[in-house]
């Protein structure tokens, strides 16, 4: 039985799923029910040190850079519409391969081209993030972002982080304006 977190809550993954190694970070949202430009939401992951910054740009995993140099994080691909049941986008994480200098894996979802399309998270419904043990396909923890978001165009859904030798997951649910660019810059990525 997976744990369901609410905003701000956290769970010890190492305790809930002992020997957790191969992780699927599943992210989902509803496609728009109305006519108009699709909501193209993108999942990205920042591998950050204890100062909250990436060691270098190669530790920013997103649709144009799907794999980290160490092979620990792999983006499975870009879904352009959010159609279909289940995860719309997902990221694989191999926990043992995550370099020791990396303290946190920050999982974000941003709306592509939000400004030009006049879109924001206030228009997106039923967003969630879930952590699945790929070795047995068991969902370990889930966070439904049931809060009503408003005009944010970027959102930190959650983060996987080291804590006293264990891996934990925190439900963040924090929105930002400025889309992926602002979030990337905040995490130390040099955005061209």
């Amino acid at each position: 039985m997976a744990i369901s977190l609410s905003k701000g809550g956290n769970v010890n993954l190492s305790k809930e799923a002992p020997n957790l190694e191969n992780v699927l970070v599943g992210l989902g949202w509803d496609a728009r029910a109305t006519d108009g430009k699709d909501f193209d939401l993108d999942a990205s992951l920042f591998m950050v040190k204890d100062d909250g910054k990436v060691p270098d740009d190669s530790h920013f995993i997103f649709y144009n850079q799907k794999t980290s140099p160490d092979g620990s994080v792999e983006h499975t691909g870009d879904n352009l519409t959010g159609e279909g049941e289940g995860d719309d986008e997902s990221v694989y994480v191999t926990l043992s391969k995550v370099p020791a200098t990396i303290q946190r894996l920050v999982i974000v979802v941003t709306i592509h081209d939000a400004e030009a399309r006049g879109q924001n998270f206030g228009q997106v419904s039923n967003a969630f993030v879930r952590i699945v043990n790929r070795d047995n396909n068991q969902e370990v923890v889930r966070f439904d972002l049931s809060e009503d978001y408003s005009t944010e165009t970027a959102m930190i859904f959650g983060e996987i982080y080291r804590h006293s030798g264990d891996w934990k997951f925190k439900a963040v649910g924090q929105g930002y304006a400025g889309g992926l660019k602002a979030l990337a810059q905040q995490h130390g990525v040099n955005v061209g």
Partner: peptide, 8 residues
């Protein structure tokens, strides 16, 4: 209010 904006 802008499109998508929510308020109490």
């Amino acid at each position: 209010l802008t499109r998508g904006q929510r308020a109490k």
